[in-house]
């Protein structure tokens, strides 16, 4: 897992919507929050970025890869988006801006998106957070606009295993 060395903040609203995406697993959420020393997440405040990432990874460890992807997908499908983001391209291109709205740190990384043609894209993430959540977020962006996608983890390593970035090859 990659942590921020510079320290920074993470938006409570993003963490809150992720926890909402867990739906029926509220007992699990409560346990993870209690272990982290809080009763609830306040969506109006900012939290220490590494503390917030620890929450993501603690839940990932408990629910596993498949469930983490599903939560990321559900989170994006239900999230309110600004008008104009109504196709796969605009949504995937907007991911970096959305990440910057939710994280503040000098070494928070970024998300780049390059379209290979009309129906495929390559995304490179150097952001913080678990890899399966990123896959779920990409899937959610595509399914939100009715374009179910195949998201494959590219060769060249995974951040969850110590690599500097994760590359996702998206076909939709």
């Amino acid at each position: 897992m990659r942590a921020s060395k510079s320290g920074g903040e993470y938006n409570g609203a993003a963490l809150y919507s992720f926890l909402l995406g867990l739906g029926h697993s509220q007992a699990l959420v409560q346990k993870v929050l209690r272990d982290a020393g809080v009763d609830r997440i306040d969506p109006t405040r900012w939290y220490d970025i590494n503390w917030a990432m620890d929450i993501y990874f603690a839940i990932y460890e408990k629910i596993g890869r498949g469930a983490m992807i599903a939560v990321g997908k559900k989170m994006i499908e239900a999230a309110p988006f600004p008008p104009g983001l109504d196709d796969v391209k605009s949504l995937l291109m907007g991911l970096d801006a959305a990440y910057r709205m939710n994280a503040r740190a000098a070494d928070m990384g970024c998300i780049t998106c390059e379209f290979d043609d009309d129906n495929s894209a390559t995304l490179v993430w150097t952001s913080l957070g678990p890899c399966p959540l990123n896959i779920g977020i990409i899937e959610g962006c595509c399914s939100r606009v009715g374009a179910p996608a195949l998201v494959e983890h590219g060769a060249g390593g995974c951040m969850d295993e110590g690599a500097l970035s994760c590359t996702y090859l998206v076909s939709f």
Binding site: E114, D116, T122, V124, H153, G154, A155, G156, T167, Y168, L169
Partner: peptide
């Protein structure tokens, strides 16, 4: 040329 592809790797 394509990042993340098995060929590039």
């Amino acid at each position: 040329r394509r990042a993340g592809s098995v060929f590039r790797s």
